[in-house]
Nucleic acid binder design. Structure first.
Lengths: 276, 276
DNA sequence: CCAAAAGTGTTAAGTGTACACCCATGC
DNA sequence: GCATGGGTGTACACTTAACACTTTTGG
């Protein structure tokens, strides 16, 4: 039966996080993970001048959701986010930052994964364990990640049917309060764009100035002046022009640029702008 | 015995949060509160041109700590912070905002409340309950509050010997990672000062321009030009000059100002500045 | 009258914004 | 050659930063 296999898949998957073989040594989820706390990750990517987020279609649902998971008993919160990211997308070593904690007691109630689970057949210990776990209230910590689009192999993971990049302006309806989480992540990204040099994580190593500008325009949601944009970015000293141009495209070949790691890191710390 | 009374005080205090009389109906802390999650609040006040934080000296310790507490099973995280603030300082209706989640698994280990507790005598169910509760790992959500100094009656609460305003530049050593939490709160406050009209919560209803300037200087940690400061604040339209001056002090009487609620709220939403 | 704090205006420098022309490429 | 996108410079407006004198008040 599909439902039973689904529960087993969850247990298997989650217990894998705990480095435990479920068949050999079944542990209670509540013993392996911190109770009541989860992490959800908004993964931003940029492709064809569109800002995208990576969403999973969850098994047994028609709904989509953010990649998320739980925190191991002795695991740093940030490491939990890194692990979840790796488990569910294969990504490692990418920019990842917490941006908000969502603590509404009703966030698990409406439009609800637990309610969905409840409807399903519960016929063994694993299923019972999963059901009880997901029926609990969770406070979730929102992280956002910036990744280069091409780095992701959107293979499906244990818990999902599909894993897909969705345009930030047209993504499907999401489970729980995940839409709110995405909105808040986007808002945080917009706020940070003026003070942090966004880009090194979202673009390939070599990129053109128009590409960088499109990234900014997409995040900010409006057009910018080409000439002023270039002047500004160059003034920050965070990019260097490479000797080659991007040939092969139509029209005039644009110069290639690369981020200047040293000044980029410095800018990350000091910020690009200050007032007062 | 002091230690025993201390445990009882904690249980009493915590169970009060759960609206439960510990004598009549003793509940497990883990049933009343979300496990593994706490809130800690950095309360900023401003007095005599000094930025201060409100600290508690904890019973049975020589150490100081931030006012903190736990989240009730069905309580919104933000409401938990509000409740904790009220319980431990009497303050209501003040500016309160989450700024970071501290998720290091070792944050409870070193310089450790649990270790302190362990040394103490454990001789009844209440003490055992408290000890087990505090021995667990907690992920804590940092909130910061902005309050008008004179609003606080720093009376001691159940869990503390003293409750005192401490200068931000010279406060005692703190339990756990509370120093780190304070640093992060201050950093967040500094970041926000350029974009949010800080002040309405930290100053009395009527204040002078030099007072507002001193507040800014204290938060930013450096001197500002009087003339430019005044021009800038007035340009924001967030304050109005009142007909009276502050008389009674030495030297020339400064004008009084009051925040303009409407434009202040608007500025909070839109921010004072934008780039791009 | 003197010291200390408060009030105010002007100017130069820098930054942001608007805008127009030339160049390279494919069709 | 023409449409399209890429590369660059200049002028104006606005914001910021630097700065000095006058007024009030208590002693």
């Amino acid at each position: 039966m599909i439902n039973k296999r689904f529960y087993h898949a969850i247990i298997y998957f989650l217990c894998n996080s705990m480095n435990t073989n479920r068949n050999a040594n079944f542990l209670k989820l509540s013993e392996g993970f911190l109770p009541a706390l989860s992490v959800d990750i908004v993964i931003f990517g940029f492709h064809q001048n569109e800002l995208k987020i990576l969403l999973l279609e969850l098994n047994g649902h028609e709904n989509w959701g953010l990649p998320g998971g739980f925190v191991l008993q002795e695991e740093h919160l940030h490491d939990a986010a890194k692990r979840v990211l790796k488990e569910r997308t294969g990504l490692t070593d990418i920019f990842l930052e917490q941006f908000y904690i969502f603590g509404d007691p009703d966030r698990n109630q409406s439009n609800n994964r637990a309610a969905q689970l409840e409807k399903q057949i519960v016929d063994d210990a694993y299923a019972k364990e999963v059901r009880e776990w997901f029926l609990k209230r969770f406070v979730t910590v929102g992280f956002y990640a910036l990744v280069e689009y091409t780095m992701v192999d959107p293979k499906q993971d244990f818990l999902s049917l599909k894993c897909e990049w969705c345009d930030i302006n047209a993504f499907p309806s999401l489970v729980l309060d995940h839409r709110e989480i995405v909105e808040k992540a986007l808002q945080t990204l917009r706020q940070n764009i003026n003070f942090q040099p966004i880009g090194i994580n979202l673009l390939p190593k070599e990129f053109t100035m128009p590409e960088l500008q499109h990234l900014y325009e997409t995040i900010l949601g409006r057009a910018l002046d080409r000439r002023n944009f270039q002047k500004r970015i160059l003034a920050y000293n965070i990019v260097s022009r490479l000797p080659q141009k991007r040939t092969g495209g139509a029209y005039k070949a644009p110069y290639l640029y690369a981020f200047n790691e040293a000044t980029y890191q410095q800018a990350l710390q000091n910020g690009l702008k200050n007032t007062w």
